[in-house]
């Protein structure tokens, strides 16, 4: 179902943002990272956020994920006003609803793959078994390996398993292939694609690589803190067909 169809059927957006701005003050310089961003993300959307460095993609993702607060504007998740939550409530929001994947995997080196995932399943309300999550990203053979014993692509897939093990409604991926070569990157994207298909998680994928945006339902192009273009991909390309 396309976004337009979801809208037409009267499905409420899972995530709604209106006029988000973000101003950083570094010393005497003001940086306008976001200049009034509004968007709706519908359940089971796979959206690519495309744009050059410094266009505000990560800032937007951090605000949507409850890692950062907007200077003005509002955002709602399932009807709940996220932009006004305090630190404690934001922690609960991340804990219960949001999964993150970063460019640098940020695994805990002292925990095995399976334990890194269990880190999340232990505190989430409705998690899947940690090993199932790892199976979803094709790492059932590497459960008891420590991060130092895994390749970059494998580490990133552990990070994805960790993000989705709680069965989040929202999966936010910030340049998940940024540190990987294209072949390994494809494996990681396939994992994201498979999870999106099997779990129906609303997924936002940040990339500055236009090729990767082809695997999304919808592409939001950012520039200078604003969404400068929004388009629907008439046909999603399979991750395994992507080359860059």
């Amino acid at each position: 179902m396309t976004t337009a169809e979801k809208k037409a059927q009267g499905i409420e957006p899972a995530l709604r943002a209106r006029d988000l701005t973000k101003v950083y003050r570094t010393g005497e310089v003001e940086v306008h990272a976001l200049r009034g961003v509004s968007l709706d993300l519908y359940p089971a959307d796979l959206v690519a956020l495309l744009g050059p460095s410094g266009s505000g993609k990560s800032t937007l993702l951090n605000i949507l994920g409850g890692l950062d607060q907007a200077s003005s504007g509002e955002s709602w998740f399932n009807g709940q006003l996220v932009s006004k939550l305090d630190d404690r409530a934001l922690t609960r929001y991340r804990r219960e609803h949001v999964g993150f994947v970063f460019q640098f995997y940020n695994l805990i080196p002292s925990l095995t793959a399976s334990e890194n995932v269990a880190l999340v399943t232990e505190i989430a309300p409705h998690p899947m078994p940690a090993d199932d999550a790892l199976r979803l990203v094709g790492l059932e053979e590497r459960l008891n390996h420590f991060p130092a014993q895994l390749s970059g692509g494998e580490q990133q897939r552990v990070a994805i398993a960790r993000a989705i093990a709680k069965q989040p409604e929202l999966l936010l991926c910030d340049e998940p292939t940024g540190a990987l070569d294209s072949q390994t990157g494809v494996l990681v994207l396939e994992a994201i694609e498979r999870i999106h298909a099997e779990l129906g998680t609303t997924t936002v994928l940040i990339t500055h690589n236009a090729v990767i945006a082809d695997m999304a339902d919808r592409v939001l192009v950012m520039g200078d803190g604003q969404i400068v273009e929004e388009r629907e991909n008439p046909e999603r390309r399979r991750a395994r067909d992507l080359r860059w």
Partner: peptide, 16 residues
């Protein structure tokens, strides 16, 4: 710090 921040992102509270 990085590890602890990661845990915060994953939804761990300050106390945890």
């Amino acid at each position: 710090g990085r590890e602890l921040a990661t845990l915060r992102v994953l939804g761990f509270t300050r106390a945890e």
